[in-house]
């Protein structure tokens, strides 16, 4: 549990961070450190230098953004839970954060760190996908915005390229009256999802007008559930919900492990989708 030797520096500015990334000298960024530091201790990662970005003000906090919200990459889970804007407009974020780690983890772990790390069982990818989030990245070469559904490409693999920094996440406003829910069947040791479903649903009168569901924990990457489109235009009758849930895992490559065989995960997917939709529908106005 002793990492290989490395240098440590605290970044003073965003420019310093972008310069360091552009130099491509093996510098690794650290904010909360909850993914990176265990990897260092196992010597799975042996970077020459760590650059600490936890203190850069531009990367922190939640703010109003075009009736939605802008979340700085360095915002901790605790800050997300305490944000009034998120509580009012995106209660899904707080619901998920409460299930992440423990108090200490939530005090240090950051949303940007989790998103850039892209652990296949982590919670945030599915959440950002259903909220249609935009992920803003910067490098010395310039800025770009990537849709969450395109950002997560595989296990620990994202659309970020070597010199890019994830700076902030934009959440566009959710449809009026939308209800959301997160249902996670967690692995007992790690708390990571064996299968989890994030859902957001809106209705116009009784008819479903908007629905997004995404899954995490099944395989390499979080997935948007295609079968839910059948719900749009229906009154979300139980038979339709059953069908949507049963078909949710179609086309997704599901992996088994020592905690949950693929067959069990496939079954749980339907349960998670159904329960998340039921809860989201119950919350929709």
């Amino acid at each position: 549990m002793i990492p290989a030797s490395f240098e440590y520096a605290r970044a003073g500015s965003l420019r310093e961070v972008l310069n360091a990334l552009a130099a491509k000298d093996g510098t690794k960024l650290v904010a909360g450190g909850h993914s990176l530091i265990p990897m260092l201790k196992f010597r799975l990662a042996q970077p020459a230098r760590l650059l600490d970005i936890a203190h850069i003000a531009e990367l922190r906090g939640v703010s109003e953004y075009r009736r939605g919200a802008r979340i700085g990459a360095g915002t901790t889970y605790r800050e997300l839970m305490e944000s009034d804007i998120l509580r009012e407009r995106f209660p899904l974020i707080g619901e998920v954060c409460r299930t992440i780690g423990d108090l200490q983890v939530r005090n240090r772990g950051t949303i940007g760190g989790a998103v850039a790390h892209a652990d296949p069982a982590s919670d945030m990818p599915a959440v950002l996908i259903v909220l249609d989030a935009l992920i803003n990245v910067r490098s010395k070469r310039g800025k770009r915005a990537i849709e969450a559904r395109d950002f997560f490409q595989g296990a620990f693999t994202t659309a970020l390229v070597e010199d890019e920094l994830l700076t902030d996440i934009i959440l566009p406003p959710s449809p009026r009256g939308a209800g959301s829910a997160y249902v996670s069947f967690a692995q007992a040791a790690s708390g990571y999802a064996i299968v989890a479903a994030a859902a957001i649903v809106a209705r116009t009168r009784k008819t479903v007008s908007h629905v997004e569901v995404a899954l995490t924990g099944l395989g390499d990457v979080a997935h948007r559930v295609e079968s839910t489109r059948q719900l749009v235009g229906t009154k979300a009758e139980p038979e339709v919900l059953d069908k949507v849930a049963a078909e949710a895992a179609a086309g997704i490559e599901i992996q088994g492990d020592i905690h949950a065989p693929a067959e069990y995960r496939r079954h749980l997917t339907a349960v998670a989708v159904r329960r998340a939709l039921d809860a989201a529908l119950a919350r929709a106005r």
Binding site: Q187, A188, A189, S190, Y192, I258, H259
Partner: peptide, 19 residues
């Protein structure tokens, strides 16, 4: 505690061994 057939401990950390 789970070993694979070659005798590798698969539950070697608290991420996999559920205290």
């Amino acid at each position: 505690a789970i070993y694979d057939e070659s005798g590798q401990l698969l539950t070697g950390t608290m991420m996999d061994y559920a205290v």
